[in-house]
Nucleic acid binder design. Sequence first.
DNA 1: TTCGAATCATTCAAGCTGTAATTATGTTGG
DNA 2: CCAACATAATTACAGCTTGAATGATTCGAA
Lengths: 147, 147
Amino acid sequence: MTTSAEPHAIAERQLCGLVNGLAQRIGEHVRERAATLGLTASQATALREMSGPMTMRELAERMSCEPSNTTFVVDKLEKQSLVERHPHPTDRRAKQLVLTAEGSALRERLLELLAVDSPLSGLTPQEKQLLHGLLEQAIVSGLGEHR
Amino acid sequence: MTTSAEPHAIAERQLCGLVNGLAQRIGEHVRERAATLGLTASQATALREMSGPMTMRELAERMSCEPSNTTFVVDKLEKQSLVERHPHPTDRRAKQLVLTAEGSALRERLLELLAVDSPLSGLTPQEKQLLHGLLEQAIVSGLGEHR
DNA sequence: TTCGAATCATTCAAGCTGTAATTATGTTGG
DNA sequence: CCAACATAATTACAGCTTGAATGATTCGAA
């Protein structure tokens, strides 16, 4: 009988809780630093992920959120003249997002702020690498689950 | 000069992205299973964490969210007669949350649903244990950061 | 070529979440 | 004792997020 009271199931629930807890902590960290720049957490996350020109969908994937959400966030960033929506060079359905000079400068400041006192600073480089591998495996192995 | 373009800083950003990505995946999993029981993701999370009587604040900690949030969620669960707010035996400020028989039964079904095809099923038990240790260390070592 | 299916982005409604302020109660030091 | 401070829960509010529906465009197969 495989029930949810099994030790294995309990351990897995705990693990999910830890992942969520750490993600929460990371989110707080971003929110806190973003606020000093007049950005919300999701705006900062979008800015952080915009390492180069990309489409809305690409940004959504990097942010791990729905595309409709990026529409919302990019609207805000565009109103602040940090980002522009250009026509995509080869696909007329898509937009190409590009940072303005102002957006690019703010992104640099943001990255610097985010780099100090990271929520992961309690791990050694080796441990971080180990964690990276485990997370990657968990994610890729669960890729085909949906559909 | 320690800038955000450092390999170390980039690796850390990637790691944060992976943690968030996995947390997102876990959230989707919960949302999907919860929906089959007529629950939203946060309602299901609350139910999952209610392994016994506890206060609002305790629930908030287990859910890694703000207490004001649990007020919102518990309101919904109470309307569905899954949870009751009892006076706390020793502290008149606090509420003691207890599952109804119906809530307890639904929780059991939920736990069973959540146990199958978990987003972490791509890891071996050893890897899960390793991941558990790393996450715990990352979390506890960052405890004193705020305040 | 052309029709049908898939993809990109957007909009809207509904629900989730954090912050700050409020009320009620508990705790502690003088 | 009691005044000051801390804590439990709630409320109001603003912002975030998802999911479904829509319109425009692209892709693929007959």
